Amino acid sequence: MEIQNIEVIKSSGEKVKFSLDKLRSSLKKTGADDTIVNQILDKVRDELYQGISTKEIYNRAFALLKKNKSHLASKYKLKKAIYELGPTGFPFERFVSAILNFSGYKTQVSTTLQGKCVSHEIDVIAFKNYEATIIECKFHSDQGQNCNVKIPLYINSRYRDVRDNWYQSSKKETTLNPGWVVTNTRFTKDALRYGNCCGLYLLSWDHPKNSGLKDRIDRLGLYPITVSTQLTNREKQFLLSRDIVLCRELINDSFFLDHLGVSETRKEKILNEISQLCL
């Protein structure tokens, strides 16, 4: 069967034509050279069949990449690693906060603010240059689930309630910026349309173009600890429970690995992998 006739099934259940170019592009973004990319493409192409899932294609490409260079495989699994921050969503809030910290913001996580009508628990508040930004994080553990228009509708009403009370409080010397909504998945077209119309800043996996969550993570080298191919799931959960969310945080606090009883040989492999990621 010709490769252009192969249909694959996405996590949402949608059927789409398989694209070798998309797979090549995602592999190239990890920093893998042409030789490695072409080897992986050849092997994946040989194993394609009608109705194969995108998950199965990903798993195969990931395994082949890991066999070559583990830190490249870590980059390749970034999207999956964000889902692994769950299930509570709190590590995702801390992750968003950490990204903003490295962009020059001072942040507070899980803060209660008084609105004109009621009080609201805010996921992240970011401060910079006497300006404050209220950020709500919507974490989905289901890869097929997107943020529909109800999310920005709800968040905009909360934002407006806080805004109406903001300058009545002691924070009046700080300007309140338009609110943000950050998600690890994608926004529907209506959600994007409403967000743009009411003035909310929407940040998702791939929106805005060239400045989405993935772009910011790659650009700043701020990979979540869950991307590691060397750490076990149990070790990752332990580190998350100790507020170690970023790989670069583990480099600075490697004594956590000693606490986990990690051998010196494994410790070296783990730190080598995440050091290459954070370059």
Rank of each mutant, 00 (worst) to 15 (best):
L20S: 03
S25T: 12
F18G: 05
K17Y: 12
R45H: 12
E47M: 05
T30E: 05
K22C: 03
R24P: 06
R24Q: 07
I9V: 15
E14T: 10
V16G: 05
D21A: 13
L20K: 11
R45L: 09
I36C: 12
I40A: 07
N38K: 12
S26Q: 02
V37W: 04
K29T: 01
V8R: 00
V37E: 05
K22Y: 05
N38C: 01
L23C: 13
L23I: 02
A32T: 05
N38H: 04
L41I: 07
S19L: 04
K29D: 00
I40R: 04
K43D: 14
T30S: 06
V8S: 10
D34H: 03
V44E: 00
V44M: 04
G13K: 09
K22M: 07
D33L: 00
L23G: 06
D33S: 07
G13S: 04
S12N: 12
E47H: 13
L27P: 06
D42M: 09
S26M: 02
S12H: 04
S25H: 14
S12T: 09
L27W: 00
A32G: 09
F18Q: 05
K43E: 12
K10R: 14
D21G: 10
N38W: 01
L20W: 05
K28F: 11
I9Q: 14
R45P: 00
D42F: 14
S12A: 01
T35G: 02
K28V: 08
V44P: 01
R45Q: 08
S26T: 01
V16R: 08
S26P: 00
V44K: 06
K17M: 10
G13T: 04
L27S: 03
D46K: 12
T30L: 11
L41A: 02
K15V: 02
L20N: 06
D46Q: 11
I40P: 06
L41Y: 00
V37M: 08
K17A: 11
L27M: 10
V44Q: 03
D46R: 12
K10H: 12
I40G: 06
D46I: 08
L41W: 00
S26Y: 06
D21H: 13
E47T: 03
R45D: 04
D42K: 15
K28L: 11
R24M: 02
I36K: 03
I36T: 08
S12G: 02
D33H: 10
D34L: 13
L20V: 01
K22F: 08
F18V: 02
V16S: 09
K28T: 02
K29H: 06
K22D: 15
R24W: 05
S26E: 10
L23W: 11
E47S: 15
L23V: 08
S25A: 14
D34S: 15
T35Q: 12
S25Q: 14
K29Y: 09
K10Q: 13
S26V: 04
S25G: 11
K22T: 06
N38P: 04
K10E: 12
A32R: 02
